[in-house]
Design a protein around this nucleic acid. Structure first.
Lengths: 230, 230
DNA sequence: ATAATAGTGTCTTTCAGACATTATCTA
DNA sequence: TAGATAATGTCTGAAAGACACTATTAT
């Protein structure tokens, strides 16, 4: 057995992949780093836990998000934790990653008003310099979102509080990457009673669509059968 | 904005919930703490990352498990990370929890030979003093195992390398907490091609059962439809 | 009326549930 | 032979896929 050791702790941070949906695209919130290392590169919103202020790591993630968006997202879910000797040039570091969703309109103003935060299309990521292993993390968060779209409707938290079924379906189609059967999509949502009707709405031509909002149970609900993938 | 701060790191550890299956029971590996805090209470195998020796947090978890069982488990999966100001009396602490599976026979000898490690029935947990929030963590790992049993057969890694379909089904029944339809269980496994046949085996009375081993694809495979729960 | 989008009817397909039947062993 | 466990046949039922059809609006 080894002798008594001191065990310095690794650096520990929390980061969030905050998604939204706007103009038929999935977007992710990025902030520009103002300090070394990786200064001026774009990164996920996050940072060190404030041991005095934060009660939990989740609270730390929410605090960091609120600093960048002025609001706290209605959906936050722990994704995974990555830790190794090489992801941060400062040395051994660990980060717990949260996946979050918010309506674009809810923080559009605020994000547009600051220069160090922006919404970026998932498609445009390839051209951007990202800090640390954040590109890989976003990829993994995206894949989890895609899987979730097959058996839940939590992705609806990326929409405004009220939305049409067509909007919700289209969001799912973008996430999954292929078209869905309207009948199947609506049938299961109705059967599970996941939505609440609110009013009516007019569109560019066509019959007006009913508006819905997510019931709280949608957050936990999982369909027992997945939609078709690939 | 706050002034420049120092940001002390929280304590960071990795812990594993190592399950196995023996004599029709699910068991979890516990180790007795030899030092304060929570000295002499039973705890999950784990501890601090060794920044010099461990390349990743997963490697740290495996190293800790190997110290207690002498072998590395064939299945290891990151469960969740918990971090708050109150779970450890020493102060702010964070732990990343892995869920692992191993055949009972693979480490039976070793575990039986040391006094500070034991396999404990999930049912017997209520009578034992557990350190920190480990009881709650085990509960959460157990629930995840149960969910997985509905759409995958990874729980088979808690069995010896070769096993019968009846054994695998019974393990699933214990995890899920209710009997399963033999036909449904076998049909989906065969259709997905998750197992490999190996030989024959004799039992206490009755027709001999074919022996199978898990194919590697079983680790990633998910059925699109869950078995019935509740 | 036409175009556009929302919403429904209904038939097919897939796969799990239920349970009976056959197969192969031991005592 | 009976008893036990393994393995399969097959019918039913639930829910998704496919796609045509109707409904309601704007122009």
């Amino acid at each position: 057995m080894p002798a008594k050791e001191s065990f310095p702790s690794p650096l520990y941070t929390v980061d969030s992949v905050l998604f939204t949906y706007h103009e038929c695209k999935i977007k992710v919130l990025l902030v520009q780093r103002s300090i070394e290392p990786e200064k001026s590169k774009w990164a996920l919103p996050g940072g060190f836990v404030d041991l005095a202020k934060d009660e939990t790591i989740e609270a730390a993630a929410l605090r960091k998000l609120a600093e960048k968006t002025s609001v706290t997202p209605p959906y936050l879910d722990q994704l995974e934790t990555r830790g190794n000797a090489s992801r941060d040039p400062r040395g051994w570091s660990v980060t717990t990653i949260y996946s979050a969703l918010i309506a674009h309109q809810a923080c559009e103003q605020f994000v547009a008003s600051v220069s160090d935060a922006q919404w970026l299309d998932l498609e445009e990521l390839s051209g951007i310099k990202l800090a640390f292993d954040h590109r890989d993390i976003i990829e993994s968060a995206k894949e989890r979102m895609r899987q979730r779209a097959l058996y839940s409707i939590v992705s609806g938290y990326a929409l405004p509080e009220s939305f049409t079924l067509s909007e919700l379906q289209h969001l799912h189609e973008v996430l999954i990457g292929k078209p869905l059967q309207k009948r199947s999509f609506r049938r299961r949502i109705e059967q599970a009673g996941l939505l609440e009707e609110v009013g009516e709405k007019r569109h560019e031509g066509g019959r007006p669509a009913a508006l819905y909002r997510l019931k709280d149970i949608s957050k936990e609900f999982r369909f027992v059968r997945n939609l078709e993938a690939d």
